[in-house]
Amino acid sequence: MTQPGEFYQRDRSIQPPAFTPGYKTSVARSPRYSMISLQNSVSEITGPRFGHSDIDAGDNDLLTNYAKAGESPIGERIILHGRVLDENARPVPKTLVEIWQANAGGRYRHKKDTYLAPIDPNFGGCGRTLTDENGYFYFRTVKPGAYPWRNMVNNWRPAHIHVSVFGTGFAQRLITQCYFEGDPLIPICPIVQTIPDQGAIEQLTAKLDLNATIPLDSIAYKFDIVLRGRRSTLFENRLEGN
């Protein structure tokens, strides 16, 4: 008989290190001493859980969740959908997925964003949902625009949607970004390039999903998210009380 144990050790060879000089802001914001490696205790294998009383059904529809009645945001209508899985390829059900993004012109609805492109009066730019029992989630939104940022003088972010996911334990907590297949800005983005592994970058690139596209309505992109998996442990004395 087995029971779930601790999470697999995080594979740091595919994760961005803290110190990445090409992304200048990381220089002063990166710890320099080695992290202390911690075998998971109850503090790491547990994490917050969310339910349908926390969010509303329309929170995952960015086409309508901030638009005036009868209006819609400007931009290419898309569906972003996929599954949250763990490293054992098992779905992660009922977990909270939150997203945020710029509008179709590359402008964020944020008091600190001063980019020239205009705010869209019908677009808030955030959404959230819970995965279903198969780990599946979807959002309706517009494809975000590329935008310039201060790093080197002429850096542009590829179109991207920021994604936050929980999982079942606090050790799985993850924030990442979803890119779009075919974007020529991906390989030259200093933030993308903090990731040391090409396969890991491809895993963050949503693929055009023609089968999920709604004819005459919206183009679909598929984006699966993988969280850390847990060991199945035999009843071991060493895990007493775990």
């Binding site: 995080r10 594979d11 595919i14 994760q15 961005p16 992304y23 990381s26 899985l85 763990d86 490293e87 054992n88 390829a89 939150e98 997203i99 945020w100 964020y108 609805r109 944020h110 008091k111 600190k112 964003d113 808030g124 730019g125 955030c126 959230r128 920021h162 936050s164 993850l174 924030i175 990442t176 970004q177 933030i191 993308v192 903090t194 990731i195 592994d197 396969g199 890991a200 970058i201 895993q203 963050l204 998210i225 993988v226 969280l227 850390r228 998996g229």
Partner: peptide
């Protein structure tokens, strides 16, 4: 096995997604 998705910075506009009141 699958590989964990790579992390990316939350960026300067994290509030929009996780604390929209603070974004304005």
């Amino acid at each position: 096995y699958l590989k964990e998705s790579a992390s990316q910075t939350a960026g300067p506009y994290v509030h929009i997604g996780l604390a929209p009141g603070a974004a304005g």
